[in-house]
Design a protein around this nucleic acid. Structure first.
Lengths: 348, 348
DNA sequence: TTTTAACACGAAAACGTTTTCGTTTGTGTA
DNA sequence: TACACAAACGAAAACGTTTTCGTGTTAAAA
């Protein structure tokens, strides 16, 4: 087991100085052709590669970006990671992943671990608990130390940093308007409690769509789920709530759900109650998941272009890292990714 | 924007040496109580944290593990990552992610990037292209430089390293035996071409199950899909092939598919042809995906315990990293994770 | 022959730590 | 008084690079 070879070892073997080796390998004109050839040949033979850690220390730059997300077993987030990885790799960066598991403290700890030199900047989406607590000191501290942050999807408007978001409001509005155009008269909304920023915006989109078509929103058609619970393990409870919704509002003929699972559950319950989709009830979800595509009937959804979000976020961050012009009064961008309504079988 | 504070700065401010600061912060008995208090207070005030990169360089240890997988938008792999991250974090390690995108060259490049000091060891699952090419030099080179590797799921038996695998053969055999017990007389297999190691093993499990029940396997009941194509984009082609399978074998009453999508497609086609699941045809898939749980009917599957695989792999790697007893003739383990048949609606 | 300039290379600092091994000071002992 | 010894601290090396700034040698110019 031969350890990796270093400049020092090459220098000793060839009886030259470390500086000479370094320069020879970088093809410096200071070094004679003879020496260059000798050194380069030797380096190739022993498969020399500069040590990244030493480079990072010297350059005070790791060429690594940290991505901090609430959950990785999640179609949306993994697609974002793919986008980030794609451009990061293309631009010579590595990606280090931290998971907050929706917990505030894990988010803070993870940030601190990574902020101590391991990475050059952050791409992150904040945890639910952080959204509830409204405690953002760790973001501010990190940024005040000169480490740039790009937030995506779940962002916090009070913080001054680059952001990549999806147009939740407009996406939701379009979806609901689609239902209205398709002749739905009584459209229910299945959403989350309001502290989830995206849930709130999508709810607002629903309301605006109704309003702009002179439809009076009814409180009993809006079901707000408490999603601090893991959904996967609380499917039955969710389905019960939805069933209740259907039973107390018999005229429901359209459903807009703020995520995939709510939409799927709604379809399942509807079918169980004897409704036909899309003839009796039309359903639209908000997501980028696999379930929508493969469910029966397949689900019409508002696509968020998750991978593109990741790509844009990575480009934003790397641009900032490489243009450190140290211009005081820096400015931050917010990129809004347009949503797209993907029509499938759950709507007419 | 104040940069992170260093030992040197603290030393200068307090008019002591760097060594004293370092020792004071680590509570060395060499330093007087007075000085310790002074230094520690100052450090706390300025939120001093040692620089990870400098530590890595000094200790020749990064406390970071690299995970290299073919694809991240994939339920199985993301669950593995979650497992890895979980124990890595608990044991004080960070996780850096590389994606090969099923490409040999990207796998090699990613390995080389990370092997140059960025990480202490690898957890990986090899790409399809690498499996086809049977070119494993990069693994051998990496290991010969003293960097440990743990392979999971898609492993290569010729390479001597720690491995975490699922008992593909037995899992498949159990599944098929379940179908046999459920009175299936004509069981079809939907699998991949043989170069995919797991596909091959699962096929073998299918054959062994038949054999042990004195059932003669029929070539026409075995459909081998070329999965070099992205499945998602070639769904129709896949469904055509399956439809053909059904039409030329009218007596099929059971299906074992080596992954989720094949199973789902089979169900879809079966329904389209007027079969009832599970009464006319029973279906079992092999996977850990979300689709199985939420499809209608929900799919009986062989679960691979992906997260557990990740956890075991991480423990294996970290143990090796921390027990570097430099005993020549080191030995490698292969951990086999038992599969579990999760019965849902697609079987009786 | 002397001066100059190009050439080829080496020494050393720097990045931020930790740790080993002095060195100084003060105190107690012979 | 001389000596040993502990206490408290500092200098320096080391991890592996890159880069700046010498420095010595040689060949060309004066």
């Amino acid at each position: 087991m031969k350890r990796k070879i270093t400049l020092k070892q090459i220098a000793r073997e060839l009886d030259v100085s470390i500086s000479t080796v370094s320069k020879a390998l970088r093809n410096s004109p200071e070094i004679s052709e003879d020496t260059k050839q000798k050194v380069q040949a030797f380096a190739k033979l022993y498969n020399y590669r500069p040590n990244n850690i030493a480079l990072s220390l010297k350059n005070r730059k790791t060429n690594t970006i940290g991505i901090l997300i609430p959950e990785i077993v999640h179609h949306f987030f993994s697609k974002v990671i793919r986008g980030v990885e794609l451009v990061a790799n293309k631009r010579g960066y590595n990606v280090i992943v931290g998971l907050s598991n929706e917990s505030f403290s894990k988010e803070v700890i993870n940030m601190e671990m990574l902020a101590n030199g391991s990475i050059d900047g952050f791409i992150l989406s904040i945890s639910k608990e952080t959204q509830q607590l409204q405690d953002f000191h760790h973001f501010n501290e990190t940024m005040s130390q000169g480490m740039p942050i790009v937030m995506f999807d779940r962002v916090v408007s009070d913080i001054n940093c680059d952001k990549v978001i999806v147009d939740d409001l407009k996406g939701a509005k379009n979806a609901v308007e689609k239902l209205i155009k398709n002749d739905c008269k009584s459209i229910a909304l299945i959403t989350t409690k309001d502290y989830v920023s995206v849930g709130k915006l999508r709810t607002q989109g629903y309301l605006e769509a109704l309003e702009s078509h002179k439809i009076q929103p009814k409180a009993e058609l809006i079901l707000k789920i408490d999603d601090t619970l893991e959904y996967e393990s609380n499917l039955e409870a969710l389905e019960k709530e939805i069933e209740q919704l259907f039973k107390s509002n018999e005229k429901i003929d359209g459903i807009f759900a703020v995520n995939e699972l709510y939409a799927l559950s709604a379809m399942k319950v509807a079918r169980k109650l004897g409704f036909d989709i899309p003839n009796d009830i039309q359903v639209i979800g908000f997501t980028d998941g696999v379930l929508s595509k493969h469910s029966t009937p397949s689900l019409t959804t508002v696509s968020q272009h998750a991978q593109q979000m990741g790509e844009r976020a990575a480009d934003l961050l790397i641009n900032k890292l490489e243009n450190k012009i140290e211009t005081e009064e820096e400015e931050f961008q917010t990129i809004v990714i347009a949503t797209e309504l993907i029509e499938r079988e759950s709507t007419k």
